[in-house]
Design a protein around this nucleic acid. Sequence first.
DNA 1: AATGAATGAGCCTTCATTCAT
DNA 2: GATGAATGAAGGCTCATTCAT
Lengths: 202, 202, 202, 202
Amino acid sequence: MPRSPEANEKLRDESRSRILSASLRLFAELGYERATIKAIAAEAGISQGLIYAHFTSKAELLRAIFAQSMADVRASFAAAEAADAPSARIEGLLRASSEILRRNADFWRLSYSLRMQPGVLQELGSGLDDWTQSIVETLEGFLREVGAPDPAVDAELLFALIDGMSQHYVLDPDDFPLEACIERAVDFYRALPKRPKRRMPA
Amino acid sequence: MPRSPEANEKLRDESRSRILSASLRLFAELGYERATIKAIAAEAGISQGLIYAHFTSKAELLRAIFAQSMADVRASFAAAEAADAPSARIEGLLRASSEILRRNADFWRLSYSLRMQPGVLQELGSGLDDWTQSIVETLEGFLREVGAPDPAVDAELLFALIDGMSQHYVLDPDDFPLEACIERAVDFYRALPKRPKRRMPA
Amino acid sequence: MPRSPEANEKLRDESRSRILSASLRLFAELGYERATIKAIAAEAGISQGLIYAHFTSKAELLRAIFAQSMADVRASFAAAEAADAPSARIEGLLRASSEILRRNADFWRLSYSLRMQPGVLQELGSGLDDWTQSIVETLEGFLREVGAPDPAVDAELLFALIDGMSQHYVLDPDDFPLEACIERAVDFYRALPKRPKRRMPA
Amino acid sequence: MPRSPEANEKLRDESRSRILSASLRLFAELGYERATIKAIAAEAGISQGLIYAHFTSKAELLRAIFAQSMADVRASFAAAEAADAPSARIEGLLRASSEILRRNADFWRLSYSLRMQPGVLQELGSGLDDWTQSIVETLEGFLREVGAPDPAVDAELLFALIDGMSQHYVLDPDDFPLEACIERAVDFYRALPKRPKRRMPA
DNA sequence: AATGAATGAGCCTTCATTCAT
DNA sequence: GATGAATGAAGGCTCATTCAT
């Protein structure tokens, strides 16, 4: 007598999510290339073959992880955007990143490690570029609202700042003072400087 | 008939530096794992075997690149530190990074791609951690000099900012407005905000 | 609640024959090695596991197909043999092959593809050799009856001819003029040449 | 001091031809699928990796074998065609096949085994179909010259006969009376029957 | 009788590394 | 110093087969 469809689905889902979380962990810890299918299977407590019953290839597995995590992250971002009054949006966003980071540290680690590897990146297919692009645009909108003198440049700067902090946190979560840095950044953006008159810098 | 010792040494040095620059280029472009010894040899215009006459392994080649480039970078930094009056040091440093980046873009690309891959990193041996540590300390000194309220945190923040900009530049040198961002950062640090009284943030 | 034994048996037979015809089709189309158990199950509309409830292995499945089809073919041959007067037996056999081929094209395709792969053949176990042997002997009998000068050689020749035509037909059923060739072969055998005196050929 | 270019070429050629002949042997003996790269390497007395220094893939290796052998065979055929007076061409061709077969028995075994496996065939790329096509056309020309009533059909018949004999020989070189069969076939074609008046066959 | 999740051996291929010259 | 042929240890992936239900 075959297993009931529900029992089957449960088994499958269980396997799938073990694979997914094992790979996220190992991809983040070792990097995509060094995280062996063999090692992933071991970490997930299953056989190598089973991975291919769920994902057609290692690259597919990477894509699945991204799809899953990016959906999660996107939701968090959207929540942050909607929540605040215009004047507080930047503060809101900065403070939100802290939680988003903590909740998906492994994903961010992986994502940052991939960003610098064009070879692997293209196995992932596009999506990441578009995404960062859209973040910059969002930031630019916020900064325009608060009267930044050159919102395009300020957006790049703010994004660089957030990205830099995120990476430093993710690299060393125990020692990097994430919250303190964020609060300090808030100070800076509250005192948003006007662009001064200036002679051409060399 | 044997070559003269000097001619030999010159040949050797020539080979060595071809290998080094070829690997730097390929490591940066493809990532450490995907840059094949075969491809490096081809790029350098020499045989695979010769690489092992100069470096005992691929990891050791990576180490050599780091040693060479870090020396170069350290020198640039030292110059920047010494050049300015205390009050202008932060500005000086920010502006200096632009040139340091442009001169060694490949090295930075590689370095950033490695930083997130502990697996590869440990083949590199320590050194990178110590180095970033020393940078943070230098920054902290600068910030203390200009009266930052919490130099330790401000140093982390400034380092994150520089690192973020550097990465964004290195990722897309043609589109990222590096100089404009740096100048804008200078604005922020000229207007260095005091830490305001504040109720505990949630 | 348990099914009645008869219903069970009917189900079982149904499954078995679906499996058999699905595998014959796929073995013929893709070759034994490339026809996956998974694909066979899909083609048969059943689960992979069920195949192993009927056959202990893929090789055993192949054996079953051969047993089934060879029985079928043997019957057709016997009918052809018995039907004609001695003088017309060769013609009868030639003409009969056409129908036998058309009826079991897939089996012949498979059979021809296997014949050249000793590796697979031995998984099949003996049987095919014996069978071709018996065909040659039958032909030899026919040819002796019609006064062939060297029935043994003529039998080999005739078998080769039939086999050659069969394969060419099976390879390209739409373009190969099977019936025309058979009729032409009949011409040749009606005019069965005497063996001429001859000097040793080099 | 590097090996001389000649020494290198000799080494390479030696390896290449060991690989080529080992694969031909194993492909012919076991079939393409069952002839493992591992087994081929062992048969050739070299490492698995070396095969890929000469051929980019297993399929490529197959292609190389075909290219090599087909050139050889084509030359033999051309020689046979040119050698004889029109009236003796068919005899000449029949007798030539014997030697062509004996010289490349393994290649023919392989070639016949592949012909029935569309999957593998297409990895080989086209060429085989064109080739058989051109053979049939050549035969048709010969038969027209000697006044065959329907050269197109007669060509198919003759080709089937040759192919049938070839296969039977190649399947069992020790027992199949190749020369005797060929001589007997010559008898048949010397006595080339006219097409008789005939009522429609059933 | 039947299912489909799960296994594990083995395949093709890549690549850092060695070695004879 | 330099070459390039050669090796061998994985790595990703497939597939016949088993097993709990």
